[in-house]
Computed example of a mutant assay.
Amino acid sequence: MAVSREVRRRICLSFVRTMGTDFAFPRDDCCLLWSNESFPVPVDTSLTAAREQLESVLTHVGKRPIVFRGIAVLAQLHADWIEMGSPGELDSAEIELALWTAQQCAEFEQMELDGWGHRYRADMDVAVRTAEALSRGFLSLSWRPVVDVYGGSSALYHSLIATAGPIPEESRSDAIHESVYAPSLERLGLARLWDRHLLRKTLAILRQRPGLRLGIRLSTQSARCDHWWSSVFSALHSEPMLASRLVVEFSASGVVSELEAVRSFCSRLQSLGCRIAVRGLGCRDGDLAIVHACRPDIAKVDPSFLRRARSSEFGREGLQEMLSLAGHLASHAVVDGIEREEDMRLALRAGAQWVEGAFMDGAKARRGEA
């Protein structure tokens, strides 16, 4: 109830002119917002402006934690358009039918019931701290180059790794690394808000650095052609040279509930000129389904193959075979996880052209660029 009330308050404060004609909330978990002077919806043939208006509602309402009795949470939001009459002309059956038609399809995933409450609270704590770090500009970016194993002068691109925080006055001052915030946000269904912010930040960096090619890691949960991405798609469409320098990465280990949605999202990005990469190839059974959905331009072999190659001939054969498979699945195959000079020799022996890892990092941390 407290979360719903705060969501309604934020909508009314910024997007409602007159309560009686612009806004209604037939159920506690959903509301209806009509186009009005505070929420104008210019209709054009592409509906781009209308989609970006919905994007503004989602981000404005969802970006800040909601606090009730000392507990902070982030709301998972969905919005869509539907044609309806004015509030006074609708009966309850029409409203219920409209809301049922417009609702988002549920994403079902297997969840362990034991200890779910503790896990939910821990995940939400991470999500809130991440959101607070973003809102206050405490974001650290590291660029990890994907380089030619033979020492070419230019990188294929730089893979961007983001860290949230720390917030200076926070008692728990540790920064929140991707390995912590990414799974928490995914389990809560909140990855899209973070991914959108990071992608927009990446586009800003690309505008500032015309010679740079950057890769950004997105959750497969974010791979939907919906209103969250309206402004991003518009920017990529209007700036094709910008799009050509952007690589969007997905993890082969990501949980995917709708492969067709991932296919549509990746195809949309590629049609705009972006490249798609899949990292962690071979890390689990069934990851070829994500490769099939993404149709990547770049495939990164999981670092576990390189670790096994250090200790046995069997491992070295496995690295070579996985690298060969990656080369068949994408235009560029990358050996990931290079940590020492020995790894470079192993990658060369396996036939690699492109490598990535801490050994050749030169990663330049950029702080406070949220």
Rank of each mutant, 00 (worst) to 15 (best):
T202I: 15
S86T: 03
L214E: 07
A363S: 15
A252D: 06
V355Q: 01
I82F: 06
G62P: 01
M124K: 05
A277T: 02
E339A: 10
W229K: 06
H197A: 14
I95F: 06
S140G: 10
E321Q: 15
L259K: 04
L139I: 11
M124S: 03
L33I: 02
I216P: 02
A72H: 04
L206W: 12
R144T: 08
E339R: 05
R17M: 00
V180E: 11
S140R: 13
V334F: 04
P240L: 10
Q104H: 14
R136N: 12
V57R: 01
E109Y: 09
I66K: 07
G362V: 12
M241H: 15
A293C: 12
R69Y: 06
C105P: 10
C294G: 01
L185E: 02
T18S: 06
R340E: 15
R200G: 12
T18G: 04
E52I: 05
A191Q: 07
W34V: 00
L203T: 08
S311L: 15
D114K: 12
R367M: 13
T163V: 13
H227M: 10
D226V: 10
A24V: 02
I82Q: 04
L236A: 07
Q270L: 06
P303E: 00
H78C: 12
A326G: 12
R263E: 11
E341G: 07
A347I: 03
G211C: 10
E317C: 10
S234H: 14
Q104G: 12
P26L: 00
R64H: 12
L246P: 01
D125F: 06
A182I: 02
D148I: 05
S331A: 15
D123C: 12
V3I: 12
V7F: 13
L156K: 09
